[in-house]
Design a protein around this nucleic acid. Sequence first.
DNA 1: CATTGAAATGAATGATCGTTCATAATATGA
DNA 2: TCATATTATGAACGATCATTCATTTCAATG
Lengths: 222, 222
Amino acid sequence: MVSLDREVGIAPAEKPSRKERERQQHRQAILSTALRLFAEKGFLNVSMQEIAAAAEFATGTLYNFFSSKEDLFFELLDATAEESLGMVLSALDGPGDERHRLSLFIHLHTRVIREHGAAFRLYIMESRGRCLPGPRVEAKKKEIDRRIVTQLAGVIASGIDKGLFHNIDPVIAARCLFASLELFVLAAIENPQAVDLDADLKKIETVFFRGLLKPSGERRDE
Amino acid sequence: MVSLDREVGIAPAEKPSRKERERQQHRQAILSTALRLFAEKGFLNVSMQEIAAAAEFATGTLYNFFSSKEDLFFELLDATAEESLGMVLSALDGPGDERHRLSLFIHLHTRVIREHGAAFRLYIMESRGRCLPGPRVEAKKKEIDRRIVTQLAGVIASGIDKGLFHNIDPVIAARCLFASLELFVLAAIENPQAVDLDADLKKIETVFFRGLLKPSGERRDE
DNA sequence: CATTGAAATGAATGATCGTTCATAATATGA
DNA sequence: TCATATTATGAACGATCATTCATTTCAATG
């Protein structure tokens, strides 16, 4: 009866009862345990029994909070994705010219994986291949990708309009940058001590800003 | 006894017996059925029972040819990867200057997925995430990636030496191009009728060759 | 203290799937 | 034709795992 407050959305004025607070704590404990395990071993290699044991609950208890394993996973993906997404998208919306904003976006990735490493791993690793929990998760992943690429393409298009960038296809460029960043971020997450992500991102920036080819006028030095 | 010839590697002079040929045909039938199913649904979503039924054999028969499901998958990955690999790497070794060879490499991808679409799908989709059949498969995937990136980086480095390309990190550039191509090829495989891969590859080429940023001298037109 | 009901429990269920193996079918050669 | 070897068969096994539910726990309330 009390917990209906949350669902109906009324009376947030009264603080939730201790019971309700405890319930939310348990819920959070399960979520963070699941995040750790999923990020470590992948959705399919973690059983509900394992999550329950690691969180020090019984198996059945998990189903008092989440209606299925997919539900639990989706909730995780949704929450963590929105959090990280806000972070990187803010760079694209921020002040400065388009070049500056792109640069910021690129370099922001080190901070994101430092602060949301497990979530990023979850997001990148689980959203590939044919081993997805279900269509809802796949749809969410596509939505996130679309939002990032769209925003990115918007900045690039704006830069083209201002004559700052070459007249290339903004969406294609956005997708290339996106794919490249994902690859390097993944490498950095998998092998943190062997990869200097900051240095790599600097070089990626150079590749995308300058391109491979020298303008024909400069072809002789080096 | 006869079939030991293959394993020991002697006496390839004598043509294999009819029995042996039939055996190899059965083997091939199983392999191509498995390739089709794996490419469609992914390693984990195809059971040995399903492969056997589709290939019109009994479940147990599969184990006369392959010692495990992972074995069957690895054999597939190995064979198809080497085939496709030879195709794309040949472009990087071929004649022409570095710019030409890179361009050829990029555009060759349409032909590869037209001729080896299922294999490519297998290679790209299964080699991500935490749903891999086993460490051998993962190692193979890494080896293939390494070979492509190394070759690609070699061409880029050579272009830099000749003063044709900007002085960027060849390995980073190679990885970015590699990641971008994989993304677009995957999209084309998943949704062939909605994607004009040829056009996309042309634009990718432009992005990587020219870069985003205009040289400071040209900033005003458009 | 007794009652109550929400929350936790964890053994049991049922389904899936890789793998095995005793048996059957078939081919081979004398 | 018969003995032998090879290959195919598919039911059965065992392990895993998501999910269920009858039961227990326990704090709040009367």
